[in-house]
Simulated scan of single mutants.
Amino acid sequence: MTIQLQVNGRTFAATLEQNNTARALAQRLQNYGGFEKVGPLGESLPANDRQTTTHAGDIVLYQGDQIVLFYGSNSWSYTRLGRVNNLTGWADALGRGNVTVTFSLAE
């Protein structure tokens, strides 16, 4: 399943992992038609954390209720949600400081 992320006016497509956590996120997108979240989701998703090394473009769940969009690399315990398909402009779009990200199902 593919989702779209709007970051500071730029659109990125991401492919979701095939796991319960990614399906729960997609279900919330379907139920609400799109939403804006920065960091905390405001609710928990089912987590299946595993020690992993992330790379630019990885989308993961942290502590069950926070979405993390990587433009660098880190090793920690996360639940994988998906990955941005094309990283052209990704780091620039995330920029410095706070950003607003809108998630929606791709059409």
Rank of each mutant, 00 (worst) to 15 (best):
T53K: 02
R23H: 08
R28C: 02
Q30V: 04
D65G: 07
T52A: 14
D65E: 07
T53R: 00
P40Q: 10
I59H: 06
A22Q: 05
V60G: 00
Y32Q: 14
A26R: 11
A26K: 14
Q18G: 07
N48D: 10
A22V: 10
N31K: 04
V60M: 01
G42S: 15
S44T: 11
E43L: 13
Q66L: 13
D49H: 07
H55C: 02
F70A: 09
A26Q: 14
E43F: 15
Q27I: 07
T52S: 15
Q18C: 08
N31G: 08
G34K: 08
L61V: 05
F35E: 03
E43C: 12
Y32W: 13
R28D: 01
G33F: 09
P40G: 10
H55P: 01
E43D: 13
G42W: 06
Q51L: 14
I67V: 15
K37M: 03
L41A: 04
G33Q: 15
L61T: 01
R50S: 10
G33T: 14
E43I: 11
N20T: 15
Q51H: 09
T54D: 14
G34W: 06
Q63V: 13
L25W: 05
L45A: 05
N48Y: 02
A22C: 13
G57I: 02
L16N: 01
L45M: 05
L69Y: 09
R23I: 06
A22Y: 02
A47H: 05
G39P: 01
G33E: 12
G64R: 11
E43R: 13
N20A: 15
Q18T: 11
L29H: 00
A56E: 03
N48G: 08
Y62S: 11
L45S: 00
S44H: 04
V68M: 07
N20P: 12
Q27L: 06
T53M: 04
Q30R: 09
D58I: 04
I59E: 01
F70C: 12
E17A: 12
K37Y: 03
G33I: 12
E36T: 15
N19P: 10
F35H: 06
Y32I: 04
R28T: 08
A26I: 10
A56Q: 05
A24K: 04
E17P: 01
L61I: 09
T21F: 03
D58L: 06
G39M: 06
G42M: 13
I67Q: 01
R28H: 09
Q63K: 14
